[in-house]
């Protein structure tokens, strides 16, 4: 805290002092998956770059993407995308001032990450089983 005038201001208690709950989890995961989606953007750019560079570059990309590690990364970024999308939709509802009742908030804090996982499973099921 190098800012003059802000050094003596109180700090809120940090992570370790709170009892874990779904709302806390979904909030933290929104930030984690949002950061994870940067990896997704990088892979999207790599995919487009491989396409624009020609067939040889694309085949290298496709080979890497279909190795076990490639699949783990791709499944990871799809999960990250869908989870961030679901908690982002939750944020839209909270932004209009709705969904702050304790029970409602708890339900959607659980439903959103679960939906993220289900959408990931659905996406890969369709992709691999078609």
């Amino acid at each position: 805290m190098a800012q003059a005038g802000t050094t003596n201001r109180p700090l809120s208690p940090h992570l370790q002092i709170w009892r874990w709950g779904p709302a806390m989890f979904v909030s933290i995961m929104h930030r984690v998956t949002g950061s994870g989606n940067v990896v997704g953007i990088a892979i999207l750019l790599w995919w487009l770059g491989a396409m624009a560079s020609g067939k040889a570059a694309y085949d290298t990309f496709a080979w890497l993407a279909t190795t076990p590690i490639g699949y783990i990364v791709l499944v990871g970024i799809t999960w990250s995308f869908f989870t961030h999308m679901m908690s982002g939709l939750r944020h839209f509802v909270l932004d209009i001032g709705a969904g702050y009742e304790l029970d409602t908030n708890k339900v959607w804090s659980i439903v959103c990450p679960v939906m993220g996982v289900l959408l990931t499973v659905l996406f890969w099921a369709i992709l691999l089983l078609r």
Partner: peptide, 16 residues
């Protein structure tokens, strides 16, 4: 810039 360049190159048929 890189992403847009790639898309434009593909769309205008620069990559064969």
């Amino acid at each position: 810039a890189f992403g847009l360049f790639c898309v434009i190159r593909l769309a205008l048929g620069g990559a064969a």
